[in-house]
Amino acid sequence: MSEPLLSARGLAIAFGGVRAADGVDLDVAEGEILAIIGPNGAGKTTFINMTTGYLRPQAGRILFGGEDITGLAPRAIVRRGIARSFQIPQLFAEQTVIENVALKVAARRGFWRAFTPLLDHTTASEAMRLLEQVGLAQLATARATELNEGARKLTDVAMAMALEPRLLLMDEPTSGVASAEKFAVMDTLVGALRARRTTAVFVEHDMEVVERYADRVAVWSQGKILVAGPPREVLADPAVLREVIGVETAHAGA
């Protein structure tokens, strides 16, 4: 196997007494779509926060394309090709959906334009294409504050894609999306990712989604990666069932 695109070694971080990460080793291969599952509060989002530079790990290293990016500022990491979406999207509230996406398109294509409109022809049409890919074309001129949660999440992902990252980290892309639309949303998302050959990592709670869309699953438990592998094998592993899914089905049954 060729060198992984992202490679985390021995990542550790603790908040107060809680060890969110305690020696995490995780590789992400070029082109794959990896799901991270695990109990609530296990530290999955912390992994995204560390990889994107929002939090600095207390120990360990993160390599991206062979380069050590540990502790770089978010801006520097974005420029190297890692983008993220958020569990709770905070869109730019005073702007429309297409302006939100266009800002990110502009961030990639040449931001330092002071006297030509943000929505010039090329930026606007590229932003529109992204909105079409996530099925939001009709909402392009809506204000970001008028969207429902599902549309906000899709906008957020479209904004991350606008940066044309080599690696996209998504924090619970289907949480808050109505369950009837869940697969439709993921079909669109994963279709867009595959079409762009973008490597992706997503944190997810919904096992159906994981099974259907992930190439590989990593199980995050007690600050470590318990096991990683193809969804079918991992989700059948008794240890995983006990640690993660058992808990979740118990919740679902309650």
């Binding site: 702007q95 302006e99 266009a102 800002l103 502009a106 961030a107 931001f111 330092w112 334009r113 002071a114 006297f115 030509t116 409109p117 943000l118 929505l119 930026t123």
Partner: peptide, 9 residues
């Protein structure tokens, strides 16, 4: 014009 440019936004 500045206000509607990427920088202004």
């Amino acid at each position: 014009r500045f206000l509607v440019s990427p920088l202004g936004q």
